[in-house]
Design a binder for these strands. Structure first.
Lengths: 160, 160
DNA sequence: CAAATAATGCAATATTATAACATATCTTCT
DNA sequence: AGAAGATATGTTATAATATTGCATTATTTG
């Protein structure tokens, strides 16, 4: 999932296409700013912070957007399930499967920062079970798994 | 797990006792500041933010501690497994079972903010499994489940 | 006791996020 | 098309969370 060993342009195109389609279907407006923010989020598979998005957009126009501009776009994208917030990094990552309601998990590499989204129904089921045992009404899950991605763990092994 | 329907003084005493014992065993110093911060974290079963801790300590002395003072104490307590960081709230909560290395899960009530720590080995096992499937070397898990605790869900049901 | 290590005090500042209000743009209805 | 209402953006200021760097004090070690 490094940005180098796959055609990342395709990831971006797919994400934007899906976003466009979803917004259309829901009568939501994917405005230029929202699209630019989504593009920034998808510029890599690393989670990106709001202020890095501001910096990225600054390079594309005369003056940088103000924080609220970006945060509002992020809120829109979050509400529409087009991106996820990575709580352990205070950052954002594109959603792999927008449109489907899903409880997903994130694998975050502490070395290269690449983040992979996956959906383990078995894990979700255990989360539901755990909540149920405490008579807890589960509404939202946040599962962020940190460690080393396959590539990085191999590279570290080589370096020693 | 509301603070009202149990003897919370006992929770605090137990936590401090365990902390003292653990630090002694590890030749770590549970200094006055660290102890005060731990006490603040344990003042309830709600996660508490660093600046709320500063406010709490301010009431106990002439001038409030500076942020680094509190953050350093928090780092110490985190390193020694005496508290957990709640990423989705940028806040901190006392650890139930310090001393045991464990991957725990948090149930966070969005209404009363009370937070319960539990350890589901079944869930942990699924997290390991998910990581393994991606050849990911799992080092740290963050599982934060948000919703309504039993008490709050009942109270909400009554109000309608 | 001296040296080394660990902890704290303190000032400044970085980073992340939101509030409040004005302006502009789009949609809808006539 | 034009007015009214809703939605989105611009702008300024500020809140909330967290860290850096360096001076000082306390504790441990030899």
């Amino acid at each position: 999932m490094t940005t180098s060993n796959h055609n990342h342009q395709k990831c971006i195109r797919t994400a934007l296409c899906q976003a466009e389609a979803l917004c259309k279907a829901r009568a939501q407006r994917l405005t230029p700013i929202r699209e630019q923010v989504l593009r920034s989020v998808w510029s890599s598979h690393k989670a990106i912070g709001a202020y890095s998005i501001i910096d990225a957009l600054a390079k594309q126009s005369s003056k940088p957007p103000a924080p609220p501009t970006v945060y509002r776009a992020l809120d829109f994208l979050l509400d529409n399930g087009l991106i996820h917030r990575v709580n352990s990094l205070n950052a954002f990552i594109g959603c792999n499967a927008p449109g489907h309601q899903h409880n997903s998990q994130l694998l975050i590499c502490r070395r290269c920062s690449n983040t992979t989204e996956l959906v383990s129904e078995a894990l979700n089921s255990q989360a539901n079970k755990a909540a149920k045992q405490e008579n807890f009404v589960l509404e939202q899950t946040c599962v962020e798994l940190t460690g080393l991605c396959e590539t990085c763990s191999r590279e570290i092994a080589h370096d020693e």
